[in-house]
Each structure stands twice: as C-alpha cells, then as structure tokens.
C-alpha cells in the first residue's frame, strides 16, 4: 500500500463495550430460544415444572425469590420478559446492550445504532398480553429476528479492525455458555412420566426441542444415524465442528480471534490464549459415555466455569489490567500493513 493510513488503536473501554454489547444481544436471542423450547416442554398439568427448569438452568433461583414472584408459569415468563429489575431478563439485557451501543456510537455504524435503538423501543413495549397463548411464540420469533437483524447489519457494516474481534469474542463466549445451558435443560428435574417406551418417546421429543432451540435440528438429522441416541445429540451440541452453536466451534473461533489480535495488532494475549487452550483440551479429552456416566450437569458446570475464567482473562489482558509494556508503534504499524 502506498498511502499511509494511521492505526487509530482502540480504547480499552470501547473494547470492553463491544465485548459486552455482543454478549447481551446474544443473550437476548438465546433467552428467546430457551423460552420457545420451554413452551414445547410444557406437558399439560406440569407447566410450572417446565418453566421452573428455565430458572434452574439460568441459576436464577435466589434472584427469582428475591423479586417476590411465585413459581408458576405466568410469573416465570414475566420474570424473563417483562421484569426490568431482573438483570437476566430480556428487557434488562437489551437495556445494557443499548447503553453499551450508546457508549460505542463513535465506533459502530449508524445502521447498527438505529436498529438497536428501534429494537430497544420494541422490547420496552412488550406487555403482559404478549406473553399469553400463541402471542408468546410470535414474541420469541420477533426477539430472534431483532438480534439476527443486528447480527446481519453488523456483518455488513462494522469495520473489521480490532474492535470487531472484541465484538466477536463477546458473542462467542456468550453463545458457548448458552449452548451449555440448553444442554443442561435435561437436568431440570423434569422426568418424563409414564412407562418405559413413553419415557423414551418423551425424551426424544425433548432432545428434538433442544436441537430446534439450537437451530441445528435439520443439520443433526442429516448427520445422525437413523437410530440416534441422546449421546449423539450431546456430542453434536458440544463438539460438532460445523454447528454455529456448538461449544467447540465457538471455542475454536475464540482461539483464532485471540491469535489474530496477538499477531496482527500486537496485543498481549497470552493469558486468555492459555485459558482457551485449556478449555479446548477439556472439551475433547473425555469420551461422551464417560461424561454422561459421571454426570452431564456437573460436566457442563465445569465448562461454564472455564468460560467465565476465559472472559475474566480477556478482561484482564485487554480491558483493565492493561499496564503498558514498552510500546513499539513502528513495529505495530508494520504488522498492520
């Protein structure tokens, strides 16, 4: 290149903002997916059990009680779709996403800002009537549409300098975490009722619902043997190398992005790279049958903890604990070229 462009750098605060904006938006989409799935789990007479599962997989038991709700389907829906005071609710996540977007206005595209702004207004107008009957499923579709529109606009308009990497990191960390939570839906204490064959059928229905929630139902069907077992579903969601929501795929992409940040932007990424390598190893080292035998829930818990550690390491390396090393602006400019 003959023209000299400057490396504008990236404020640590903006990097953190991009990371979290992406996380919060991903969270909204996944919440919509989980709510949709939960509704399909509902079996007449046991609705409350199904919805309580949602509270459990989000580890929201204490918070839910604090907010003074009773453990029935209607209140749990409100807790996640209407209650701004609940930090894991859709309106609260979107509020955070928009606040971050506002902070990031100088960096994100006008189209991104407009869409988040308009989507935020839509979410802030969700009312109790949107949670009733068939309206709920439509609402979930609209929430998914909103985040997917955001994702598409971002793909087409966000400038791909290091800011984009931090945006991607946030999204992938959140997505991996959410996929473990979807898998964990099996650990909701909701045991199918009836005889053995009935149970088997009910279980299949549940796994199908999880696959649908993770948007891989058809892909799984194409890949799976005719007589697939729950093990195959777990394997697919945890370790498939092509599913956009598989934990392993997310982790691998995180690793690639961190490596790019180190290589092309000269960032000190050793801490988070170490964490992500550990996580990748952890995901691959044990056989599925071993994981299922020792307890999927416990295993997923460990994955979630490692994801938290990874997010912490990213924060330390780039957002907060950024104590400067001697800078070499020339060297950096060269790697940019």
């Amino acid at each position: 290149m003959s023209t000299q462009m400057r490396d504008p750098g990236l404020l640590a605060r903006d990097a953190e903002g991009l990371f979290w904006m992406a996380r919060y938006l991903e969270r909204v989409e996944n919440m919509a997916r989980l709510i949709d799935v939960t509704q399909s789990f509902e079996s007449p007479g046991f609705e409350a059990d199904a919805w309580w599962g949602l509270i459990k997989i989000n580890a929201d038991e204490a918070r839910f009680k604090e907010r003074g709700f009773s453990a029935d389907a209607a209140h749990i829906k409100r807790f996640y779709l209407l209650d701004r005071g609940n930090p894991t609710s859709v309106p609260a996540s979107l509020e955070e996403a928009r606040t971050n977007a506002r902070t990031l206005r100088p960096l994100i595209s006008t189209e991104m800002w407009r869409q988040i702004n308009v989507f935020h207004r839509f979410v802030s107008r969700i009312g109790p009537e949107d949670l009733e009957g068939d309206a709920l499923s439509r609402l979930c579709t609209k929430l998914k549409d909103g985040v997917q529109a955001h994702t598409g606009i971002t793909e087409g308009t966000l400038y791909r300098d290091q800011g984009w990497y931090f945006y991607e990191l946030g999204r992938l960390v959140e997505r991996a975490d959410q996929t473990t939570r979807m898998l964990d839906i099996k650990y909701t204490g909701l045991l199918p009722r009836g005889g053995r064959e009935e149970k088997r059928m009910a279980e299949l229905t549940q796994w199908n619902a999880v696959l649908r929630a993770a948007a891989v139902y058809h892909a799984f069907k194409r890949r799976a043997r005719a007589t697939f077992s729950p093990e195959d579903v777990v394997q697919f969601l945890l370790r498939d190398s092509s599913s956009p929501r598989s934990v392993l795929l997310c982790v691998r992409r995180i690793e690639l992005h961190l490596d790019d940040l180190r290589r092309y932007y000269g960032l000190a990424a050793a801490g988070p790279l170490e964490q992500v390598e550990m996580l990748r190893e952890f995901l691959l080292e044990k056989s599925l049958s071993h994981i299922l035998a020792t307890g999927l829930h416990e295993y997923l818990d460990l994955v979630q903890i490692q994801l938290q550690n990874l997010a912490g390491a990213i924060g330390c390396a780039f957002f907060r604990d950024w104590r400067p090393e001697p800078m070499a602006p020339q060297a950096q400019a060269q790697t940019m070229a």
């Binding site: 750098g9 990097a15 290091q162 960032l267 090393e325």
Partner: peptide, 10 residues
C-alpha cells in the same frame, strides 16, 4: 497525557 488502549498507553 496518554489514553488507555487495548495495547497499553497511547
């Protein structure tokens, strides 16, 4: 005066 960036002080 410096600003805090992902790559240290600028």
């Amino acid at each position: 005066v410096f600003m805090r960036t992902t790559a240290g002080l600028k």
